[in-house]
Amino acid sequence: DADYVSPRQEMKIPLAACDAFSREAGFSSVTVQDRMGGRLAGEHLKSLGHSRVTCITTNMICDDFERIQGIRDAGLQTDLFMISGDRTIMREQFRKHDFSHVTAVFCVSDRQAMELLCILHERGIRVPEDLSVIGFDGIEAGIWAVPPLTTIAQDLEAKAETAIASLFEDPASHLIDVELTVRRSTGYAKTIL
């Protein structure tokens, strides 16, 4: 919140913060239902027989934390895999990580999930036959991933429209719905020996 307070005090125009829950007076915040999205991802994986999931994130604060809590709310065991925000380092981490003890991976963003899909292909790990992968955001590029990426989609247009509309209203926190978009990167859990 402190990151938003300073600019708000300096600016004399309305402010809306996206992907943030600010409880500070004076401006609105717009975010998606991150925890519900994580729960939708977890329930989908659970319906396919998955019980243990590796959750990939760069941090455990704000939306990433809420998305992972949602996976846990669905009753899945979770392992955290903290990765670097630097793409080169992240790809190397994906190359070295042992995924043999889980049947599914939840990435807190589609971009991470698509990088992972590329590295898994290089390693000869089949998706979804060996490992299911699900992302979060619903970016259009996920349609063309190989295989197409299952994701928790957010309505970016609704988020933008809400943020703009909130500039002309009393400051408030706004939540945007999310929905599960099932594609071919998730499948039934394999047996782990």
Rank of each mutant, 00 (worst) to 15 (best):
G135N: 06
V178Q: 01
C118T: 15
R67N: 04
V105D: 04
F27T: 02
R23C: 05
I139W: 05
D79T: 06
V182P: 14
A153G: 02
R184Q: 15
A2M: 15
F136V: 01
L117C: 12
F21P: 05
D19Y: 02
L193M: 07
R39K: 08
D110M: 03
A74R: 05
Q9Y: 08
Y188M: 08
G85E: 07
D63F: 00
L15E: 05
I56Q: 06
R23F: 00
Q112F: 03
I56V: 15
L131A: 02
T150H: 01
L193S: 10
R8D: 09
Y188Q: 14
I89N: 06
E122P: 10
F65G: 10
C18T: 03
D170C: 15
A141H: 07
S185N: 14
W144Q: 10
Q154F: 07
M60R: 11
F65L: 15
A74S: 14
I119P: 15
S166M: 06
F65H: 10
F21K: 11
G75E: 04
P14F: 02
D73S: 03
S185G: 15
D110S: 07
M114G: 06
D155H: 00
F99V: 13
A41L: 05
K159Y: 00
Y4I: 11
L116E: 06
I125E: 01
D19P: 06
A165S: 15
H174Y: 09
R183Q: 04
E129K: 03
D130F: 00
K12M: 11
I83M: 05
T54N: 14
I89W: 01
T57N: 06
L193W: 02
M36F: 14
V133N: 15
D19H: 06
I68A: 11
D98Q: 10
I164D: 04
I56E: 08
L116N: 08
S6P: 01
H101N: 10
R91Q: 13
M11E: 14
Q112V: 13
I134S: 15
D63T: 07
R183L: 07
G75Q: 06
L131F: 02
E115T: 09
C55D: 09
A17M: 03
T151I: 03
L116W: 15
